[in-house]
Design a protein around this nucleic acid. Structure first.
Lengths: 133, 133
DNA sequence: TTTATTTTTGCAACATTGTTGCATTTAATT
DNA sequence: AATTAAATGCAACAATGTTGCAAAAATAAA
């Protein structure tokens, strides 16, 4: 889905900043840091605008935040198909990238009595295909 | 295991700040924010000392950081028994707490060819026992 | 297309969060 | 108790994130 369509679907004004953020994350195929997004965008936006855009996209459940390696915060796209369902991320301990693994099946573990599950996010850590050679 | 023992095991000087942080997280039984830790500690430490303590504990794999609700960063204890193995967290959408669910069994999904798994962290989101009434 | 309305932008100023160097203090070692 | 090694607190700084408000841009209406 194109960035424009995603924004339209969530009743958001299609600004270039929001579109650039979405496109950058989508293009990379994995979770990206704030700096990676900024460097990938040709235009420069005011810090305020940039943060407000991220916040809006998060609030509308278009992207989400994760902490990688106990240090860096990265942003990943909530793929519409995956959103609100089971979700698998792979974090490579060597090259420090986070990828989505949509083809991987995830079984929800049996929860203790009284708990009700709505979403599941799994992070598997290890070595990615590139680094495991 | 007592805070002192944990520190000793990792060859860290047993300072009161480090012990207080570990004890606060351990006592709560779930992931806690920076503020929750500070409020729970009787003594007040300089911001520098506090951050340096957190950093040290993270570097030594005694605690780790997670992002909750796309906004708050919380710290959780790496229970020695669970460390480096499969790991389940439950995040309650209502009361916003994160609990460890050590009794829950987790099956690692089948990864695509080339990937090698070392650790797995699963976050299940939904309603906890208290809020699901 | 032009006008009116709503939302976003950029700036400035501020608040919060996190870091570094260095002298002093505390903990561990002998 | 004396020596050594590490942690503390302070000050100063750097990075990250927020708010109010006037100007600009995007959408809706005429």
């Amino acid at each position: 889905m194109k960035a424009e369509e995603i924004l339209q679907k969530h009743n958001l004004v299609r600004t270039s900043c929001r579109q650039s953020i979405i496109n950058t994350i989508a293009k990379s195929g994995h979770a990206v840091s704030e700096d990676e997004i900024k460097h990938n965008i040709e235009a420069t936006y005011d810090r305020t605008t940039f943060y407000r855009s991220l916040k809006t996209l998060i609030k509308k459940n278009i992207i989400h935040k994760i902490v990688v390696d106990n240090q860096v915060i990265k942003y990943a796209l909530n793929d519409a198909e995956v959103l609100n369902t089971k979700h698998v991320h792979f974090y490579c301990n060597q090259c420090k990238t986070v990828e989505c693994l949509p083809d991987v099946e995830l079984e929800t573990p049996l929860l203790p009595a009284g708990y009700k599950e709505t979403e599941t996010e799994l992070v598997v850590k290890g070595l990615c295909r590139k680094c495991n050679c």
